[in-house]
Simulated assay, not measured.
Amino acid sequence: MSTEHSTEPLTSKPLTTMEERTIALAGIFQNCKQVQTLASSGKVDGFYLDVAVKAILNTSPDDTLQVFQGIAGIRDGLTLVQQQLGNGDTKRNTELTRYSISVLFLANKLLKDQAMLKQLSDGIDKAQGQVEHFGIDHSNIYASLGGLYSDTISQLNPRIMVAGEPEYLNNPDNANKVRTFLLGSIRAAVLWQQLGGSRWQLLLKRKQIVDIAKTLAQR
């Protein structure tokens, strides 16, 4: 399933480090939310899948916002940051929290595994070549990225256990898309940590992160 989303030019205003961290965190939440939606309903928004694939393949961005194709590509994630970390009346999504914490933990382990980082880099190079041949929204691309996730991140412990309906999770195409979103969330989590993000940032800078997410989402 695909819905319409507005597009906009990437911002030319330099981002602060905290803005970049907030965008990376939004990327984690946004991808994990799509995992949750696809696993429970069998439906996927092609817009977010496109953003996830491009984020994985964009290994040399000018800034973190460019990874997600501008504000339009990460706005849902910024809203999720506000909902998950804010003190409002909105009930937190505990399953989304579980996925996100797991992703952050696995990204930390990944950054200490040089062999796996090389394997991921080689796999992404291969996928970039496939995009030139098939196009970015071809099932072969999702199969390639899904397989890459299975061969790398899925080998780290503890593995992310995706909850959902068996009829959707057992569908090979859906399974590849779920793994693609998970790989996209790892991409965002690696960015978060490379930018100095940590669990202490989430605890001590929570209000600042929420305020930044709100401001960015309104652009």
Rank of each mutant, 00 (worst) to 15 (best):
T3L: 10
T3I: 05
E4Y: 15
T7N: 12
P9K: 13
P9F: 06
S12D: 14
T16I: 12
T17V: 12
M18D: 09
E19L: 09
T22F: 08
A24K: 11
A24F: 12
I28A: 07
K33L: 08
Q34R: 11
L38S: 03
S41L: 02
Y48W: 15
Y48I: 00
V51W: 02
A52T: 13
V53W: 04
A55M: 05
I56T: 09
L57A: 07
D63V: 02
T64C: 12
T64A: 11
V67W: 01
V67K: 15
G70A: 07
I71G: 04
A72H: 12
G73E: 06
I74Q: 09
R75L: 02
D76M: 11
G77H: 11
T79C: 00
L80H: 08
V81L: 08
Q82I: 01
Q83I: 10
N87C: 02
D89H: 03
K91N: 04
L96K: 11
Y99H: 12
Y99A: 04
F105Q: 13
A107Q: 07
A107R: 01
K112Q: 13
M116K: 13
M116I: 05
M116P: 04
L117I: 15
Q119L: 12
Q119F: 04
L120F: 09
L120N: 07
L120C: 04
I124P: 02
K126H: 15
H133T: 14
H133F: 13
G135W: 04
H138V: 02
Y142V: 01
S144V: 00
L145C: 05
S150H: 09
S150R: 15
Q155K: 13
L156M: 14
A163E: 10
G164H: 05
E165C: 00
P166V: 05
E167R: 14
L169P: 02
N170T: 02
N171W: 03
D173A: 14
N176K: 05
F181V: 00
L182H: 02
G184T: 00
G184I: 01
S185M: 03
I186A: 02
R187Q: 14
R187W: 01
Q193R: 14
G196T: 04
W200N: 10
Q208I: 05
I212G: 01
A213K: 06
L216R: 03
L216N: 06
A217G: 15
Q218Y: 10
